[in-house]
Design a binder for these strands. Structure first.
Length: 421
DNA sequence: TCTGGGGTCCTAGGGCGA
DNA sequence: TCTGTCGCCCTAGGACCC
């Protein structure tokens, strides 16, 4: 049996842990640059604030219902996630962290009555030890566990946050209850296509032929169908995979026209990516740079340029990557276009022990010690060492007007308790 | 005025060598 | 030497996840 554990409204719940007076208030968390809504408390959902809502369009609603707004505080959420995962990891040796707020556990050899007890204990312990509310769905496959979790969350009072699909009757009932758009792995496009074919629920989905699915969708959806039929096709992945690509992309607060400004941005993003690359002990041998105008500006034509540069050797050096990234930027930059977004993606990642030496250039790896020293200093002195082309004065800082403190990871931002006299 | 970011996997289609 | 077929590899783009 698989259990899917999902933290309820995770980012909003993290904020509430340190501001418990907001327990009943509607809360929204905004994306980078305070652009759009990426997490909502149940109260905010009830008001009708949708996921991904542009913040500026909902200003009046926020004001009317006194919605508490937070800029995203990823150091806090990441640390809270670690704490939750450490507790969950003690429940079974077969454990997979699926995302920042979700994990799968495989239970082998547990009787069904023990599963219910175990799951209820999980809900209680995580709440008591971290303050985060969770829901647990248990079923014979991962796809069904996802559905069980939705039921547990939807009917949290009745289920106490735990729902188990452990017989055929419950499976059929759950599939009939689940709208096709809510099935894990069925997105917007597939929902449209399936509805045209008369498929409105998960139950309808498992009743269409394998042939139709393979022909009109892909092997992924066929696998999903089998999984929902109760045949476990999506296995537990316990390894912490090395990333296959690493990217840093950002939208700008203002439109940028000059090459100089874009160079500064790309250089900073490259430095950021190179650091991530070294921290997972990888190197790369190609990179993609893109720059794009504002897709929402109807008056001007949307323009997106990108190019891939294949490096002559694999590297993890910020200096070398920066050199090629800027070269790529020069290739795609066009005068008189206002740019709103830019980014870099490092591709073809390899373990850095497989770094290939170049017979004709023995200076390639001379940066290794330098990078090592810079990384160590940056860790100690809060990212003070940068390349000259990077944004040294941090003039491009993101808009984060409602940022909470990093209560759990910064000593000078730790929560203070006042003694009421 | 203001609309996120970081990933993964799969498929189609073309090039190319056996 | 020419031609057809097959399979592999690569890439771009689409779809999905959180």
């Amino acid at each position: 049996m698989f259990a899917l554990i999902d933290c309820n409204n995770f980012y909003a719940s993290c904020e509430r842990v340190f501001q418990p007076q907001l327990e009943k208030d509607p809360i929204v968390i905004l994306s980078n640059n305070d652009g759009c809504v990426i997490s909502r408390s149940n109260e905010a959902k009830k008001i009708g604030i949708p996921m991904g809502a542009p913040a500026f369009k909902y200003k009046n609603i926020f004001k009317k219902y006194n919605v508490k707004i937070f800029s995203s505080n990823f150091p806090l959420y990441g640390d809270m996630s670690d704490r939750v995962m450490k507790i969950l990891d003690t429940y079974s040796p077969d454990f997979e962290i699926y995302s920042i707020d979700e994990a799968f556990i495989k239970f082998n050899g547990f009787k069904h009555f023990a599963l219910k007890e175990k799951s209820l204990d999980m809900v209680k312990k995580v709440r008591e030890w971290t303050g985060i509310p969770i829901s647990v769905g248990v079923a014979p496959t991962k796809g069904l566990a996802k559905i069980a979790n939705k039921i547990a969350k939807k009917y949290s009072i009745k289920t106490k946050g735990v729902y188990i699909i452990d017989n055929e009757e419950k499976r059929i009932k759950a599939l009939k209850w689940t709208a096709i758009k809510d099935v894990w792995g069925i997105g917007r496009k597939h929902t449209e296509k399936l509805k045209k074919f008369g498929v409105f629920t998960a139950y309808d989905f498992v009743n269409i032929s394998d042939f139709w699915i393979k022909k009109n969708m892909s092997i992924l959806e066929l696998r999903l169908k089998k999984d929902l039929e109760g045949l476990s096709c999506i296995k537990l992945d316990e390894t912490i995979p090395s990333k296959k690509s690493i990217s840093t992309t950002r939208s700008f607060k203002n439109i940028l026209f000059s090459l100089n400004d874009l160079e500064e941005r790309i250089s900073s993003y490259t430095g950021n990516c190179a650091e991530k690359l070294r921290s997972q002990k990888s190197c790369c041998n190609s990179l993609l740079i893109f720059i794009a105008s504002d897709p929402f500006k109807l008056k001007s034509k949307y323009c997106k340029n990108s190019t891939i540069i294949n490096l002559p050797f694999t590297t993890d050096s910020s200096i070398i990557l920066n050199k090629f990234a800027l070269k790529a930027l020069h290739e795609i930059y066009q005068k008189d276009i206002g740019y709103k977004k830019a980014g870099i993606i490092l591709l073809n990642l390899k373990p850095n022990r497989s770094k290939q030496l170049n017979l004709f250039n023995n200076k390639i790896n001379r940066d290794e010690n330098l990078m090592d020293a810079i990384d160590k200093m940056n860790m100690k002195f809060n990212n003070k060492i940068k390349l000259a082309t990077q944004d040294l004065n941090e003039t491009w800082k993101m808009k984060q007007e409602n940022l909470s403190k990093r209560y759990t990871t910064k000593l000078d931002e730790i929560i203070t308790v006042q003694n009421k006299k």
